[in-house]
């Protein structure tokens, strides 16, 4: 019981320190970022499902892409009006930083045995599709959207 009270006090002290640092209650606004992210995903997925219904396809069409646009537009809007607090951003950046570990977990749940033992038709078809698609990337990368002449931003170096 004594240790419980003391750890509770420790939390209180840390909370006060946090408040003193940012002056806006760090522990409250992180969830705003997470909520904005979650809200974007929910609305995007919903729109994607509706789009699928309209097209007569039993799937979510582009929900994640739409959600991403919603997040980009809403955070841009907040940043422009100066209401995007660093703590709010950190709620989003955390999940962005968890992306690669989550992808590793996803890789660990793939049906790799199914891919390896799929048989020659599947193997040849899959390999050929990948090779030809890769080869077309540099070709289509040259397509410019009409009216836009600026070059695309290039990332310094791909490791």
């Amino acid at each position: 019981m004594a240790s419980l009270t003391s750890s509770y006090r420790l939390c209180e002290v840390r909370a006060r320190e946090g408040e003193a640092q940012s002056n806006s209650g760090v522990f409250v606004v992180i969830i705003l970022g997470v909520a904005l992210l979650s809200g974007s995903l929910l609305v995007g997925t919903w729109i994607g499902t509706l789009l699928g219904d309209v097209l007569g396809v039993d799937a979510n069409v582009g929900g994640v892409g739409i959600a991403m646009l919603l997040l980009i537009l809403s955070t841009n809007l907040l940043a422009r009006t100066g209401r995007l607090k660093p703590e709010t951003s950190s709620g989003i950046s955390f999940w962005s930083g968890m992306y690669i570990p989550i992808v590793v977990a996803m890789a660990a749940t793939q049906n790799v045995v199914g891919a390896v033992t799929a048989g020659p038709v599947a193997l040849v078809a899959g390999v050929a599709a990948v090779i030809i698609s890769f080869a077309l990337v540099p070709v289509l990368s040259r397509v410019k959207t009409p009216g836009v002449d600026e070059p695309v931003e290039e990332f310094a170096e791909v490791k």
Binding site: T45, S89, W95, I102, V103, A108, K144, T145, P146
Partner: peptide
Amino acid sequence: LMGGGMLINLAIVATGFGASFDEMKKSGLG
């Protein structure tokens, strides 16, 4: 659960934070 659709989608959308909408528009046709 960690590598399932729900968290994967949440994390993919989160990577969009900081991405440039202008770059996406520029490459729309391609």
